[in-house]
Design a protein around this nucleic acid. Structure first.
Lengths: 315, 315
DNA sequence: CTGAAAGCGCTTACAG
DNA sequence: CTGAAAGCGCTTACAG
């Protein structure tokens, strides 16, 4: 091909704006430039921030993101994993559903040699790339804060029994009580089966009737805290003077409710960026074909956001 | 092939759980079973509900959804449309960015013979499938409600000048004033350039200083309403007695703020389902190859949610 | 260095 | 009705 011809061809390519067809190039390269994300919930502040981080970071490398929603259903999660494998995505990012306790579907991902990144809702028994916050430590901080505000009888609304994050936040709460020499009453821990205001309200009612001496509450979600506060107020308890409350996740509603809600901020956007970063690293390494693979993990820092619902001592 | 062999083959197929490779079958069928969605914003209650509807409906037909975010940028939107076309998605669902006022990129979609569904943020000049609410009518209802609550001097915080929805809500407001014989003061209409509480606060300050006689406010978003209310309260105005306020979109925060915020509920989930439904219809029709194509549209009903911020007359 | 050919995993049109 | 072959749009290994 003469340089002249070459120039003409290149010019033509630019002119018609030729772009290779990803679908076709897959057959040779075995790369789809697609990643799949499975979220347990879509109408969810925190997962949305993560999603935004994932989409933003993926785009920088010409990756597109398939978004699926398991609706907190284990069966759906399994099905969707297999759909994504069939799609031949280059990576799968998963936050596991609340009632997922078996992990064959995750092993299938590994068997297919597809990088798996677990985020936020991770499974400790599955070896994989992980991005999460240190829930235990964050819950410790939140409980410690209530103690420092003078609370002596601190209750906890936890999540379901299975999810690791729910266990860890509970353990952080318990550890803080022990650390500061406060008694742990197991009947002051309630389960919020679903993430809703109503659930928080309901638990608050049972709690207050059985243990009126409560003066502090740490809840696994902000919605539960909002529900609890609304019940406490109905019952004439002053927040934070009679009962100090702190939630978790720092949802958009936290600064808007009355009193404004203290919470633990998790940087979801950063978490999303990190998920993609570790995925790209794994992709590179997969070329080197190390055996056994080494899975990187990342802990995203979380921080206390103190607002009116727990602030008794002002300076 | 003997029936026996056939049975054995089918058995084997079931046994190894054979699934065709979508990527490869595309080459022949020219169908990717992928649709692309471009949202102007991801951390956004309403768009999230739409997204959930889209993902849910698409899944029932084995379609997967690529989610992109234009971040309200026209340039990004153009780029992402071309990415999706390169991906050979079977359909594109778009809610256009605030500052989009040229539509060559949408014409490119049509030229590529890819069904386009515009939702929520539609462009009236582009002929395509559309799913939206009747913004003008909804804004009329909201303003009418304030009038019925006895407001005489009603201000409006509108959106940017370009988006159709922003224009329509403004027109609905204006039409209601006219219909009920109230004067329209153009200096009582303010632009909320961004969807934030701060913006609402800021506009409320200017408004109250220039027109202290204001006794009603209709805002284009709930966040703007929340901001305005907080400023009014700081200034000692009682809500709704001195100033009645109604927002738009009925975000999750609306029932949680104090006073609870009246708003216009838009059923985002239903809108998402409808987007996919009209897309599937268009797919079927495209086989019939009608010329010129007829674009179906759907109007999703919206409804007033009256809460404390505007309710003066209780019965 | 260049260019033609093979092959990725399917589907479909066609020959037998 | 069955089965072999062609072809979708790329990339890559290879022959010239």
């Amino acid at each position: 091909m003469s340089p002249k011809t070459k120039a003409r061809v290149l010019e033509y390519v630019a002119q018609v704006n030729f772009k290779p067809n990803f679908q076709a190039s897959y057959l040779r390269t075995q790369k789809t430039k697609l990643v799949g994300v499975i979220l347990p919930d879509i109408n969810h502040d925190f997962f949305n921030k993560i999603l935004k981080g994932i989409i933003t970071a993926a785009e920088t490398q010409d990756y597109n993101v398939l978004v699926l929603c398991s609706n907190e259903s284990f069966e759906k999660e399994v099905e969707q994993i297999h759909d994504l494998l069939q799609r031949k995505v280059d990576g799968i990012f998963l936050s596991i559903a609340k009632n997922t306790y078996r992990y064959e579907h995750l092993e299938a991902i590994k068997a297919a040699n597809v990088p798996l990144v677990l985020f936020d809702r991770i499974a400790k028994v599955v070896n994989s790339i992980r991005v999460a916050i240190d829930d235990q430590q964050a819950a410790f901080m939140a409980t410690e804060h209530l103690i420092q505000q003078g609370c002596k009888n601190i209750a906890h609304f936890r999540g379901d029994l299975i999810p690791q994050m729910s266990i860890d936040r509970f353990l952080g709460y318990k550890r803080a009580l022990e650390h500061y020499g406060l008694p742990f009453h197991k009947e002051w821990t309630f389960i919020c089966a679903e993430n809703s205001i109503e659930n928080g309200k309901m638990n608050a009612e049972i709690l207050l009737k059985s243990a009126p001496e409560i003066d502090g509450l740490f809840t696994i979600t902000d919605l539960a805290a909002v529900g609890a506060i609304s019940y406490f107020k109905e019952q004439g308890r002053r927040i934070p003077k009679d009962i100090a409350v702190i939630g978790f996740s720092n949802w958009a509603i936290a600064p808007l409710v009355t009193p404004t809600l203290s919470s633990v901020e998790q940087n979801g956007y950063l978490m999303g960026l990190k998920v993609v970063e570790l995925f790209f690293k794994a992709l590179e390494k997969s070329n080197e074909n190390e055996e056994p693979p080494i899975y990187e993990s990342a802990i995203i820092p979380s921080q206390l956001i103190i607002r009116d619902s727990s602030l008794r001592i002002k300076n």
